[in-house]
Amino acid sequence: MLEIKNLHASIEDENRAILNGINLTVNPGEVHAIMGPNGSGKSTLSYILSGREGYDVTDGEVLYKGQDLLEMSPDERAAKGVFLAFQYPIEIPGVATMQFLKVALNSQRKARGEGELSTPDFMRLVKEKSAALNISQEMLKRPVNVGFSGGEKKRAEILQMAVLEPSLCILDETDSGLDIDALKLVAEGVNKLRSPDRAMIVITHYQRLLDYIVPDQVHVLSKGRIVKSGGKELALELERNGYAEYVGDAA
């Protein structure tokens, strides 16, 4: 599904290296957790995978389903099944949530050569998916994320994911700002989407989320490099010992 090979990247105009040779292979059906301290490059990785501007890839490559991902525009990536659940979902005044969802879904379908979904079919789909995430009709009537609480924003991201049914889900600190009930709800929504042909990258600081979304592999990111990989028990070890061991060579 995803092959990241020796990925080096820096922030545009700053010449500051953020990623220093990441290697990661994610197969269909797998859930990979990426953990690491602040500033280790976790969010940068998620932005580079989803196509945000402002980064220079200085070396390496990223193959998605065998194609060069970095060559594609953000909307092309989305249409091909890449989805980023944002750490800080953006509020967009004036754009109605339902209109946004419908335009997004139909743009993706169009790009894939599928027919557009009719309004009744679309409404049915959203109703079904939103009920499971405890998202009210009232929330759906508001502009995209406007006036949503932190937890509502995260649930709205998972709703988008459920409606768009991507192949590769990247969850960037989806647990941040969630209380335990919201966390369970979000994790349940994510788990529902686990399937043999879908892969997930779960970026998080804390092990807590991984109690609910159990990963196949855990990677520790430090200074833009994966310094250790292991099974889910690695997350528990990190919870006990912290990241000190992996950032030890700091000056």
Partner: peptide, 14 residues
């Protein structure tokens, strides 16, 4: 730009 990226990241062409 943030709005624009958010929409594009959901598959809406530029």
């Amino acid at each position: 730009d943030d709005y624009l990226f958010y929409l594009r990241a959901r598959g809406i062409p530029e």
